[in-house]
Design a protein around this nucleic acid. Structure first.
Length: 485
RNA sequence: GCGGAAUUAGUUUAGUCUGGUAUGACGUCAGCUUCCCAAGUUGAAGGUCACGGGUUCAAAUCCCGUAUUCCGCACCA
């Protein structure tokens, strides 16, 4: 299904909707999750924990969203996260100074150069607005971080533009107190904030968004010393270096040199295995190897995990080999020691990052799972059972003759263990359709036969098939069917 | 941020040119009916027509501003 269909479902069924929508001064780029969206998000994260955090023996932390100025001085965000911007005084259009100058004059000025350099280049080459030939204002820095003032002195601090900085600054303590051993993965789920110039397309470009980030700390001398690589060596990943993505096993990707070492190959492998279990169509995915110009300022090697949707390829995860960029910067700035012992060797660990955009992932899951069943005139959200906001609908075929009471009793017995939804009202077909739209994989219906022999029917969402089971079996059937893989 | 289009109930939509407080569908709720796939039937709730200002006896409708959404450009760690 396309963006519009997903949007309609999201609004009608409580997946997500605009923030503060009752006020007309609500800002762009802020959206909230409704009950169905939260259900899906929580289960997605539980899957993430199982497939990445627990599988690899990582630690998870939960850091502050507001962090001090020093953190971002060290991280480079205060310098590099800002673009040099010029504005046309006539038509008010905004341009990147470095790119506009390069386009018109072929003079390359690094984006973190002194602002006066841009101004001089504009003056000397008489650069005018490409749109209206107007004159440019002097160059300014536009920083995408939200600045906040702490306490009555309004001490300068920032909302984090990525969650991972807490992982870096917490690393020395975590390594010491949690008996760390390289390689060590530290993960965090939380919100990040970026003052996007043009937020758009609901969950795809937000100013306040969820990330699930993993930073794996490693000994740079032992990047091919990865025993667990055998677990994924035959896992097929799709990699794109130039024109088209190609399917290959992790082993082939490693041997061909496209992926630099076993360490990176292993994580690309388990990441693919995770996404496969979300129900996203992996045949529409690719790890796109980024060229020097596209990479973030801290990355040595970078792969974007992207998935094709009806609105194009979406970047869901950024995989960056950040080397010792972060730890050495924080060590220098804070004067703390970030080296650790790896066996008998003292090393400043390198970092491989798996930075996942949760909101975009959820959108993609919805788009890939939402299907139109023409034959039965219905929309079906074919979520994996373990990701569905509702596991099971508990329905009475009719309300009378004690069926309602029996249905209530069944609901009461399972509601703490499963996400169950009780529904008595309206035609049975409509109730099934409603459950189909929020992705509930099962519906249990109480009918007259239930009162005679204690059995109910259980309906499967995708096939619409029904079978009859004893009430005492419900728990074990559901437990097996909605369990994480 | 620039240019264009749009904004009417939970969703979708008529009405806007030609000013007189709004139409239909689906959905929701309650009842009747119905032992299995959006059925039938009776009834109900839900809109200060995005927000602010102006013109007018009167504004969803005309004018101005703002916000948001979508499309293109630009941006995107």
């Amino acid at each position: 299904m396309n963006y519009e269909e997903v949007m309609k479902l999201a609004l009608e069924r409580g997946f997500y909707f605009p923030s503060c929508e009752v006020y007309s001064d609500a800002s762009a780029g802020f959206w909230e999750y409704g009950p169905s969206g939260v259900g899906l998000k929580n289960k997605f994260l539980e899957l993430w924990r199982r497939e990445l955090i627990r599988r690899d023996g990582m630690m998870e932390i939960d850091g502050s969203q507001i962090m001090s100025k020093s953190v971002f001085e060290a991280s480079g965000h205060l310098g590099n996260f800002a673009d040099p911007i010029i504005k046309c005084t006539k038509c008010n259009s905004t341009f990147r100074a470095d790119r506009t100058i390069a386009e018109i004059t072929n003079i390359e000025i690094p984006e973190n150069a002194d602002l006066i350099e841009f101004d001089n280049a504009i003056k000397e080459n008489k650069i005018q607005c490409p749109k209206c030939k107007g004159n440019f204002s002097s160059t300014k820095k536009f920083n995408m971080m939200f600045k906040v003032g702490i306490g009555p002195q309004e001490e300068e601090a920032y909302l984090r533009p990525e969650t991972c900085q807490s992982i870096f600054v917490d690393f020395p303590r975590l390594f010491k107190t949690m008996r760390g051993k390289l390689p060590l993965g530290i993960a965090q789920v939380g919100k990040s904030f970026r003052n996007e110039i043009a937020p758009r397309q609901s969950l795809l470009r937000l100013r306040e968004f969820y990330q699930a980030e993993i930073e794996v700390f490693c000994n740079p001398g032992r990047l091919n010393d990865v025993e667990k690589f055998t677990e994924v060596e035959n896992t097929v990943i799709r990699v794109q270096t130039d024109a088209e993505p190609i399917s290959m096993t992790c082993k082939e990707a490693l041997e061909s040199g496209i992926v630099p070492n076993k360490f990176v190959a292993y994580y690309l492998g388990i990441l693919t295995e995770f996404y496969e279990k979300t129900g996203i169509d992996i045949s529409k995915s690719r790890f796109r190897k980024l060229g020097d110009k596209e990479k973030a300022f801290y990355a040595e090697v970078a792969f974007d995990f992207e998935v094709e949707t009806t609105i194009g390829w979406l970047e869901l995860v950024a995989c960056n080999y950040r080397a010792d960029y972060d730890l050495s910067s924080h060590a220098k700035m804070s004067k703390e020691k970030f080296e650790v012992m790896d066996n008998d060797e003292k090393v400043l660990p390198h970092v491989f990052e798996i930075s996942m955009g949760i909101d975009r992932s959820l959108y993609t899951i919805l788009e890939h799972s939402l299907k139109k069943d023409e034959e039965h005139e219905r929309m079906v959200l074919s979520l994996k059972p373990y990701l569905s906001p509702i596991h099971v609908g508990i329905l009475s075929l009719v309300k009378k003759d004690g069926l309602k009471e029996k249905t209530d009793e069944i609901f009461l017995n399972i509601k703490r263990k499963f996400d169950a939804f009780l529904d008595h009202s309206g035609a049975i077909g409509r109730r099934y359709r409603r459950l189909d739209e929020i992705g509930a994989p099962f519906a249990i219906t109480v009918d007259h036969q239930t009162l005679e022999d204690n059995t109910v029917t259980i309906r499967k969402r995708d096939s619409m098939e029904q079978s009859r089971v004893n009430i005492t079996e419900i728990d074990s059937i559901l437990s097996g069917s909605v369990a994480f893989p």
